[in-house]
Design a protein around this nucleic acid. Sequence first.
DNA 1: CGGAAACTAAATTTGTAAATTCAGTTTCCG
DNA 2: CGGAAACTGAATTTACAAATTTAGTTTCCG
Lengths: 188, 188
Amino acid sequence: MLTEIREKILKGTIQVFNKKGLKLTMDDVADELKISKKTIYKEFSGKDEIFETMVDYVFDNIKAREKEILNSDGYTTIEKIRLFLSAMPESYRNINFQELYSLKDKYPKVYKKLQKRLETGWAPAFKLLEQGKEEGIIRQDADLKIFKIMMEASLERFFEKNVMKGSSKKYNDYLNEVVDILLNGISA
Amino acid sequence: MLTEIREKILKGTIQVFNKKGLKLTMDDVADELKISKKTIYKEFSGKDEIFETMVDYVFDNIKAREKEILNSDGYTTIEKIRLFLSAMPESYRNINFQELYSLKDKYPKVYKKLQKRLETGWAPAFKLLEQGKEEGIIRQDADLKIFKIMMEASLERFFEKNVMKGSSKKYNDYLNEVVDILLNGISA
DNA sequence: CGGAAACTAAATTTGTAAATTCAGTTTCCG
DNA sequence: CGGAAACTGAATTTACAAATTTAGTTTCCG
């Protein structure tokens, strides 16, 4: 588990990351948290380790949320799928994903971890969807790989700026509509 | 209408554009067509005009294709919608769209024309979809604006490289599956 | 211990002058 | 007329040194 001080630093880093993006400095983080850099360096070996731990932190939270849904009783498979898919984008809201991808060049190790965790994060969704196929509520011939690509592309587009300006709809309504259309699209 | 020589130059330009992208030179085009630059400059005032005419050329072809579908008899509304939506990405295959967007900075006028034609290209699709709503085959509460964003995001992702490597599926099968899922997703 | 602030070496950004490329024109030639 | 090739000024790219920023450390202090 995470110590209190480490979690505090991670939360602060995410704060600053969402504001200043990849270009955040250690001084930024220290200022944000009103602690000195010394404290940060006592907990983390450097910027690389902070970023790596940050990715783990974000995805561990998503994973916990997903586990909750998977283990909960009283939901049908289709309800679980819907909850599960909706949980993904909601969790992503905590951190600027577009910006996370920009770590690719300067922090390839962090980027690889990000990709790996995105991949494993989808695994239980695939399991649920396969189960849905067996139960006959998902179309047998639905291509789940394409489904995944479409969902990722659509969500990423929504995370970009100005996509939904000039509309009265709320952010979450959009995400739900995306999940609805896609899930409907592969339903039997 | 387009003279033969102008069309030849446009086709050659698209050829080179798909290979070298935004950075194509007039010499490239002349070499590709095995004509001299002089001939090109006799037909076009310059690079700007070629790019502009190129966008018109591409979209006029798409438009003709779409008109054909719209005016054809013997199709139900839903069939027309499916044909119409499938025609879009197929037409896009003739030119590298990802690269077209990169004209934004250096050729803002061309980019604006591109955006305008993309917008007006969607208009008949919206009309068909609205008609589908009236006929009760499209969900009344389906958000067509989101539908459009999802379709664009999904198709653009497929136009990027390596999305479907390692699969036996053919390119067009993918595009059809995308249209299927989305259309199913908003169907009543 | 931990904060404030100074410090250093390395990385990043900036400015810019030289080198290269390219759009558009011109010349010569068949 | 149109091809081949040379030409020019403007734009773009390259190269590189100077200036700035920043990661990580150290010092001093309460």
